[in-house]
């Protein structure tokens, strides 16, 4: 039986810039540099189908799209990859990807697996989704530690459900 889980408190290195601040509400895509709203909506549906975490708020996936957008703004090749990919997912069925049921979405993505555009989007989703402090807290990763003195007095050896190896035995 699993124990009730206390949420972790996670830290992003204080020297790093903050994660993108995406507005709440339906017009969230308005501030993006490269993607228009339909493009952002399609990519949002893709990331949620690739990595469907029930417990994560939509806002987290929107931050992924904002980081895609920044990557597209920085590189025309990446921007083109996203555009080709969205054309592919939207053209696969008589309906735009975002309107498809989960089963159809999965089928469409499976068909594109192995293409360069799919690999780009899938890898970048992993790159950005799991690099988000809110996700770290949800799944129990505490992040930056050195500015807090490391874990030497903060639980590096606090696992208590197995025996603690004794000196001479490790």
């Amino acid at each position: 039986m699993s124990e009730p889980v206390r949420p972790a408190i996670a830290h992003r290195d204080p020297k790093l810039p903050p994660l993108p601040d995406v507005p709440e509400g339906p017009d969230w895509a308005g501030g993006l540099k490269v993607f228009d709203a339909p493009m952002a909506t399609a990519l949002l549906a893709v990331t949620r189908t690739l990595y469907p975490h029930q417990g994560l708020r939509e806002q987290i996936y929107r931050r992924v799209i904002a980081r895609f957008d920044a990557a597209a703004a920085a590189s025309p090749v990446v921007a083109q990859g996203f555009a080709a990919f969205v054309d592919g997912v939207n053209g696969a069925m008589p309906l735009p990807f975002a309107e498809l049921s989960e089963g159809f979405r999965e089928q469409v993505l499976k068909r594109l697996e192995g293409t360069a555009a799919f690999t780009l989007v899938q890898r970048l989703t992993v790159r950005f989704l799991y690099d988000d402090v809110e996700v770290w807290e949800a799944f129990g990763y505490e992040g930056a530690a050195v500015h807090l003195g490391g874990y030497v007095t903060r639980g590096f050896d606090d696992l208590d459900w197995l025996p603690t190896p004794q000196p001479g035995d490790y």
């Binding site: 699993s2 889980v5 129990g140 505490e142 874990y151 030497v152 696992l159 459900w161």
Partner: peptide, 10 residues
């Protein structure tokens, strides 16, 4: 595992 490990610590 069933219980926390917190492998990132240490």
């Amino acid at each position: 595992f069933d219980k926390p490990v917190n492998m990132h610590r240490g």
